[in-house]
Amino acid sequence: MENITLEVQNLRKTIGKKEIIKGLSFELREGEVFGFLGPNGAGKTTTIRMLVGLIKPSAGAIKICGFNIQTHFYHAIKNLGCIVENPELYPYLSGWDNLLHFVRMLDGISEERIKEVTELVGLTERIHDKVKTYSLGMRQRLGIAQALLGNPKVLILDEPTNGLDPAGIREMRQFIRYLAEKEGLSVLVSSHLLAEVQLLCDRVAIISKGSIIRTDTVKHLLSNRERVLWRFFPYEQGKMILSSLTNIEENEDETILTEFKEEKIPEWNKALVEAGIQIIEMNRKLPALEDLFLELTGGDTIE
C-alpha cells in the first residue's frame, strides 16, 4: 500500500548568495494528501516550482514515480499534474480549447479524456464558453481538470482554496479527498492556513525559512496542542473547580482555556454541572499557526 510516488532528497536552492531552500527532504505515498504548511515567504512556492520543473534546484534530487526530474524530465512530468499559484489559463479560449491545448501536449491521451475530466469537475455546461467569462471557482475547477488530463499519479496544488468562497472551499476539499481516497492519487497541497491543512491532509510538513521543522501526521502534530475554550456562569466558582482538575489558562474576556483530552472533557463537564455551574460554551480550539510555530521553533518568529 505504501508506495512512494514523490521523493525529495536534500533539495536546495541558492539565488545569488542567499540560500532560499535549505535542504528539504520528504516523500509522498500513494493515496495520501500531504500538506505543505508555512507562512508566506517560507519557500513553499519556490519548492513547488522546483518539484514541477520550473526552477532548477541548486542541489538535491526530486523523483516522481522513481524518475529523476532533472535527468528523466519526460517520464517524471508525465506522472505529475499541477497548479502553481492560480490556474492561469488562456482567457481568450474556451474551456474546451484550453483543455484541448493541453491534451495535444500529452502523448496517448484522446479528446474523450476531456469529456471525462470536465464531468469529474462538473463544468460540462459551461465548457464551451470563453474562460474570461468564468468565475474564480470555475477557473479553479478548470485548473484541476487540466491537471488531471494526463492521469497523473501525483497532484501538486499550490494554495488550492485561495480566493474561493466557503462553499467552494468545502467542495474543493471533498474533491481532493476523493481523488486521494478513491483514485489513489498522491496530493501535495501547500497552504498557510492551519485549519485547512487539519481538515484536508493526512500528513504535514511544516516549513519555515526554507527548512522543514517537522514532518508528522496531522493527528500527532495537533493532538496535544488542541485546547478547549470554556465559558460559564458564575465565572469565579467554575474557575476554581476547573483549576482543581487541570491546568487552566485565563483569558481577559472571562473565558478559560484547558487542554483537550477526549477522555477527560466529559468528567470536567460533569463536575461543573454537578456544582450548579451553567455552561454557556465549550469550544474546541486549534492553536494558531503562530503559536504552533513558536512552540516548534522555540521562539523563532515568522517573518
Binding site: 516550482r49 514541477v52 520543473g53 520550473l54 524530465f73 519526460y74 517520464h75 512530468i77 508525465k78 505529475l80 499541477c82 502553481v84 499559484e85 492560480n86 490556474p87 492561469e88 489559463l89 488562456y90 482567457p91 493541453f102 501536449m105 500529452l106 502523448d107 487540466q146 494526463g150
Partner: peptide, 14 residues
C-alpha cells in the same frame, strides 16, 4: 504576463 507559461512548461514536452 498571463502566467500560462507555468502550465505550458509543466507538460511532458521539452
Amino acid at each position: 504576463s498571463l502566467g500560462s507559461i507555468k502550465l505550458l512548461l509543466t507538460r511532458p514536452v521539452k
